[in-house]
Amino acid sequence: MSVTHNGKTYQLVMFDLDDTLAPSKTAMSDEMVELFRELLSGSLGCIISGGQYGQFQSQVLDRLGDFPDRANLHLMPTNGTRYIRWNGDAWDTVYAEDLSADQKSRAMAVVEEGARELGLWEEQTWGPILEDRGSQVTFSALGQSAPVDAKAAWDPDGRKKESLRAYAAERLTDLEVRSGGSTSVDITAKGIDKAYGARRLMEILGLDLDDILFFGDRLDEGGNDRPVADLGIDAIAVHGWEDTFAKLGAIVRG
């Protein structure tokens, strides 16, 4: 089982979720669902995202429905700090690298302090700004359920997120702090990021770096997709799900 891109053969195609396979916290489109099923019929696939498992369910699994190739899909929520796969009967958690209570409380305190100090703490939001995802603390400037248009308008050049990421990283030296989605900053245990998830997946599946092709929209310095590319995995930068659809379609459908 494999796909070919630029003359190289890959056994597994790995994806970010928000703004790569679908708009932020939005379900995959009909076109992407069809293409993704085609991919999984002939290759392994993995989704690794800062979102929690509930987002994977609503954005991906509910849209894919029951299909015969579920065992080819590997899920890594919260930036690879969790790994979930189909065991033949249900989606089963293989591992979870949860933060301690102290780490979570410090992360939340620092990121809120930074957001307020930098003028990034919004009063009008759609849901909570800070979220404890077990293995990750996430700051979402406009709340967890903010509409896509509002998110896109809040920080179009990424400077706001980067200023907060830098602020938190300087004060949480024992933790990993990275820019997440369009309005989010993700905090995990030190050394645990998407590269960690990719390495764990390679160990479990017996894959090498050259066996994986990655699609992501945050491959910039400090972005939460960057560690995958820095690990040495071939990466394709995309700008929205439509770009992914076009580039993936060229690979899967020729």
Rank of each mutant, 00 (worst) to 15 (best):
G222V: 12
Y10M: 09
T173W: 06
G7Y: 02
A195N: 05
E123R: 09
R37G: 15
L175F: 03
D132A: 07
S24C: 05
Y196T: 00
A150N: 13
G50R: 00
D66H: 11
I47K: 03
I251A: 12
N87T: 14
I236E: 04
S179I: 13
G158L: 11
A71P: 06
E97V: 15
S140I: 02
Q55S: 12
H5V: 08
D19F: 01
L231R: 00
E221K: 14
P77G: 04
D18Y: 01
Q136F: 01
V111F: 06
K160W: 00
K194R: 11
P147R: 04
Y196R: 08
T9R: 15
L118M: 10
D217S: 06
R70S: 12
R106Q: 14
F67P: 12
A27Q: 13
A107R: 06
A109K: 15
S135G: 14
L231D: 00
R63Y: 06
R37S: 12
L130V: 02
D98G: 00
A152H: 14
L175Y: 04
K25F: 09
D155K: 02
W91H: 09
Q124E: 12
A96M: 10
E162F: 02
K161D: 01
W121H: 08
M14R: 11
S2G: 05
T93Y: 15
D225R: 06
F214H: 10
